[in-house]
Every structure is written in structure tokens, then in C-alpha cells.
């Protein structure tokens, strides 16, 4: 579904991603794990067109490298950014409406899906996004992404700063989203939880992919165990 080959990207003159190659099949959860500054967020930004990149990104056999972000969203790649970036002075409803910006026709159907996934949002429809807690904002950010009819959902650190309870809610939701037919590319520092639900995982270090395998393989890998799981 998504093929990335020899991707290089960075900020200004500073290269961050070096020769990244990743392949994602439809219906999978793929996770990219690694420590802070490994380039995980940059990878997602390059895919969604927020930053320029060199190399090939193909989505369903169409080259999408360096298209404008709104053109990439139109093709079905929706990016839920790190730090949630919800619209603080808009209500929950309005935030979700913005998520449906390109898909007004499916608004009602998608809204029902989002409220079924996160019932808490349905209780807070008039609340301003900026006044919600971190966990609620994360649910809103994911819900807002789902309003955009994603074929591929890019999730950047969805569990960052959340309580264990909310973390479980978020990871549960990610599995449900995959079960509903959406492919997920998950970037996480919570290595254990994300590899556990992933079809495949990639380990990134200083801008390169250093290890890849199925979720179970990586969880059993001694290097992963010492570096990320403290075993």
C-alpha cells in the first residue's frame, strides 16, 4: 500500500532521515519505534508532505513525494500529529468538522463511528478543544483524523504523556481502527505496547532503520530488550 524507498529528508541543511526504506501492506499495523530524536516524527512529516524529501514515496502505486499536504490528505493518508495539535478555540464538534473538510458527504457516518470508538467525545461536543485534558485531546485528535476517511492513518506518539488508563484506551482504539479496515503507521516510544499490536515493526536510530521484523520477533530480540524494554 505504501512503499518508501531511499528516503532522505531534514530541516534546512540538517539531514535527519537517511536512506529509509519501508513497506506497508494494506490492513496492517506497522510501528516505528526508537528513542527521542531518531527521526520518527520527521518520517511521518515527510510522508504527509509537511516537509520536503528526496527519494520515493508511492501510495497505491502512485508517486506522492513532495505533493502539497492537502493533496496527500485527499488521497487517503491522514496524519495525526505529535502533540495532538487540535484547534484550541474550536469545540469538539467543530474540530471533527474540520477533520471532515474534504469529506462532507460522509460526515454523519464517520461521526457515528468516531463516537462509537470514543463515547466520551459524544458527551463533550460543545466543549472547546483547548480546555480538554491531554487524554481527551488525544481521542479528539484521532477522531478528527478518522473523519477524513483515511486509508492509511499516521499516528505520531499517541500515548505520549497519557495516564496508563488512557494509554490502554488509545492502544485499544488503534486495534479497532485496524479491524475496521484502516492501515495504521504508528510511531511510538511505548515500545512494548506498540510492538505487541503490530504486524511489523521497524527500529530507528539516528535517522536510519537499524532493525526490522514482526512485532513478536522484535519483542524477543535481545537488542530491543536491552535498549527499550529494560530487560
Amino acid at each position: 500500500m505504501l512503499e518508501i524507498g531511499n528516503l532522505n529528508a531534514g530541516y534546512g541543511d540538517m539531514p535527519v532521515l537517511k536512506e529509509i526504506s519501508i513497506s506497508i501492506g494494506a490492513g496492517q499495523i506497522i510501528s516505528v519505534v526508537g528513542s527521542n530524536g531518531a527521526g520518527k516524527t520527521t518520517l511521518l512529516k515527510a510522508i504527509s508532505g509537511i516537509i520536503r524529501s528526496k527519494g520515493a514515496i508511492a501510495f497505491n502505486h502512485e508517486v506522492i513525494s513532495n505533493l502539497q499536504p492537502h493533496a496527500i490528505v485527499r488521497r487517503g493518508i491522514v496524519h495525526v500529529p505529535e502533540g495532538r495539535k487540535i484547534f484550541p478555540e474550536m469545540s469538539v464538534d467543530e474540530n471533527l468538522m474540520m477533520g471532515a473538510f474534504l469529506h462532507q458527504k460522509d460526515y454523519r457516518r464517520n461521526l457515528e463511528k468516531v463516537f462509537a470508538l470514543f463515547p466520551k467525545l459524544a458527551e463533550r461536543r460543545k466543549q472547546l478543544g483547548g480546555t480538554m485534558s491531554g487524554g481527551e485531546q488525544q481521542m479528539l485528535a484521532i477522531g478528527r483524523g478518522l473523519m477524513g476517511n483515511p486509508k492509511l492513518l499516521l499516528l505520531d506518539e499517541p500515548s505520549l504523556g497519557l495516564s496508563p488508563l488512557f494509554t490502554d484506551v488509545v492502544f485499544g482504539a488503534i486495534s479497532e481502527i485496524r479491524n475496521s479496515g484502516v492501515t495504521v503507521l504508528l510511531v511510538e516510544q511505548n515500545v512494548y505496547q506498540s510492538l505487541r499490536i503490530s504486524t511489523r515493526g521497524y527500529v530507528m536510530e539516528t535517522g536510519r532503520i537499524v532493525l526490522s521484523g514482526t512485532g513478536v520477533e522484535l519483542l524477543d530480540n535481545p537488542a530491543v530488550k536491552t535498549a527499550f524494554l529494560g530487560m
Binding site: 509537511i50 492537502h70 490528505v73
Partner: peptide, 18 residues
Amino acid sequence: MALRATSQNREAAQLMGI
């Protein structure tokens, strides 16, 4: 609404397809 969204968070607005 898209204008307001852009003013509140330009990057997020881009990610909505605006």
C-alpha cells in the same frame, strides 16, 4: 471555519486537507 482553523494551527489545518 477553515480560515479559523488555519489561524489556530496552520500545520494541523494542512493535515485536515485545507
